Simulated scan of single mutants.
Amino acid sequence: MIHENSEAIINLYQSWLDAWNSRNATAMAKLFAEDGNLIGFDGSQLIGRDDLHVTLDNIFSHHPTAAYVAIVREIRHLAAGVAWLKADVGMVPSGKEDISPALNAVQTLIALKTADSWQISLFQNTPAAFHGQPELGEAMTEELRKVLKGDSGVNLN
Rank of each mutant, 00 (worst) to 15 (best):
M1F: 07
M1I: 04
S6C: 11
I9A: 08
I10Q: 09
Y13D: 10
Q14I: 08
Q14W: 01
W16A: 13
L17W: 00
A19F: 06
R23Y: 02
N24E: 08
N24K: 08
A25K: 04
T26R: 07
M28K: 05
A29K: 10
A29E: 10
A29C: 13
K30G: 03
F32C: 11
A33M: 06
A33S: 14
E34K: 12
D35H: 10
D35V: 04
G36K: 06
N37C: 09
N37W: 02
I39L: 12
F41W: 04
F41L: 11
D42Y: 00
Q45C: 04
Q45D: 00
G48E: 03
G48R: 05
G48K: 07
R49I: 00
D51P: 02
D51A: 14
L52F: 01
T55R: 15
L56K: 05
D57R: 06
N58E: 15
N58H: 12
P64R: 10
T65Q: 15
A67W: 00
A67V: 03
A67R: 14
A67N: 09
Y68D: 03
Y68F: 15
A70T: 12
A70P: 10
R73Q: 14
R73N: 14
R73I: 00
E74N: 12
R76F: 00
H77Y: 02
A79G: 02
A79K: 08
A80E: 15
G81F: 12
G81L: 04
V82F: 03
L85G: 11
K86I: 12
K86L: 07
A87C: 07
D88I: 02
D88H: 13
G90N: 07
S94M: 09
G95C: 07
K96M: 11
E97Q: 13
I99N: 12
S100T: 08
L103N: 09
N104T: 14
N104A: 02
Q107C: 02
I110V: 13
A111M: 13
L112I: 13
L112M: 08
L112A: 09
A115C: 03
S117T: 12
S117G: 02
Q119L: 15
Q119A: 09
I120F: 01
S121F: 11
S121T: 01
L122N: 13
L122Y: 08
L122H: 15
F123D: 09
Q124C: 04
N125Q: 01
A129Y: 00
F130P: 05
F130I: 01
L136S: 08
L136K: 13
G137P: 03
A139G: 03
E142Y: 03
E142L: 10
E143I: 00
E143R: 15
L144P: 07
R145G: 02
K146F: 07
L148M: 06
L148Y: 02
K149T: 05
K149I: 01
K149S: 13
G150S: 11
G150Y: 08
S152D: 13
G153K: 14
V154E: 11
L156A: 09
